[in-house]
Amino acid sequence: MTKGRRVNEEAVDIDYKSTQAFFDARGLGSYINPLSATMYQDEQPELVEKRDVAEKATLASFPGISCVESVLDMGCGIGRWAKFFADQTQPPVYLGIDFSASLIEKAKKINVKNGKKTHFQVMSVTELEEKKLIVPPPYEFVIISGVLMYLNDNDCLQVLKKAVSLCAKNGRIYLREPLAISVRLTLQDVFSEELNYNYSAIYRTEDELNEIIKKACADDVFYMQPWKKLFSDDLEKRKETRQKYSLLCRSETL
């Protein structure tokens, strides 16, 4: 694979070994704000905090979110959603999985006070083995937040299919992704001065990701809410992408 490429429009793959090395290093790092491990902006802890608060406020606005009984966080990083659910009046059983052992170790330390309903497990979303999950499915709420950008197209489809299959009858899937504003952009091992590391990601357009979601839900009944902007303009720092979110719901009324 050619190093250090920015590829517009063309669908090219990224190297998962490089991606895992990046996240393993992030898990071992030290940050002013611990959330920077997976939210970046290492030198702007205030921005990280504002983004975290904004996204959690969005999730808190979803009808019935405080009443869900089980949560699967696919690609949980340091488990920043664990405390959100542990703080609910009726905390659900929460399971966070991630392919990075160092991130999972950090998640366990950060969330050690969240109680017996909070669980973490080293497992890649692309190699998810249902029978080995320490909290068995189905799940009422599935989180895929900032994960699909690190998956090649076929794996993106397969992970979404798996998420659909793991959902309870009243289940919902929360999707949040940085979407390309105009054309698909792929970074292949591009050195980031901000992160001081080579970085790979795929920024799909809204239409591209919608097509993959449509295929993932082809054998099931899901209703997709239109993509919405997650952050106000002052919290956005990229010219080519915007953070957006959507919900996939088994019930049209949710």
Rank of each mutant, 00 (worst) to 15 (best):
T2L: 12
K3I: 11
G4Q: 14
N8T: 11
K17V: 02
S18Q: 13
S18K: 13
F23Q: 03
S30G: 01
S30N: 09
Y31M: 01
L35G: 12
A37N: 05
A37V: 06
A37W: 02
Q41D: 12
E43I: 07
E43C: 01
E43M: 06
P45N: 06
V48W: 07
R51K: 15
V53S: 11
V53E: 15
V53F: 13
A54S: 14
E55R: 12
T58D: 07
L59I: 15
A60Y: 04
P63Y: 07
C67I: 00
G77T: 04
G77K: 05
G79V: 00
R80V: 06
A82G: 07
F84I: 00
D87F: 05
Q88N: 06
G96E: 05
S100A: 06
S100L: 07
L103V: 07
A107F: 03
K109I: 09
N111A: 03
K113F: 10
G115H: 03
K117M: 07
T118Q: 05
F120G: 01
Q121H: 06
V122K: 09
V125D: 02
T126L: 00
L128N: 04
V135R: 06
V135A: 14
P137C: 08
I144M: 14
V147T: 04
M149K: 04
M149Y: 00
L151T: 02
D153K: 11
D153W: 00
N154Y: 05
D155T: 01
L157N: 02
Q158H: 06
L160P: 03
S165D: 13
C167G: 01
K169W: 10
K169V: 02
N170M: 02
L175D: 10
E177T: 09
L179T: 04
S182Q: 13
L185Q: 13
L185P: 01
S192K: 09
E194G: 04
Y197T: 10
Y197A: 15
S200L: 10
A201F: 07
I202A: 07
R204V: 11
L209Y: 04
A216V: 05
D220G: 00
V221H: 07
Y223R: 04
Q225W: 07
K229N: 14
L230N: 01
S232R: 08
D233N: 12
D233P: 01
D234W: 02
R238L: 14
K239S: 15
K244F: 04
K244C: 13
K244S: 07
C249M: 14
R250L: 06
S251M: 14
E252K: 15
L254H: 15
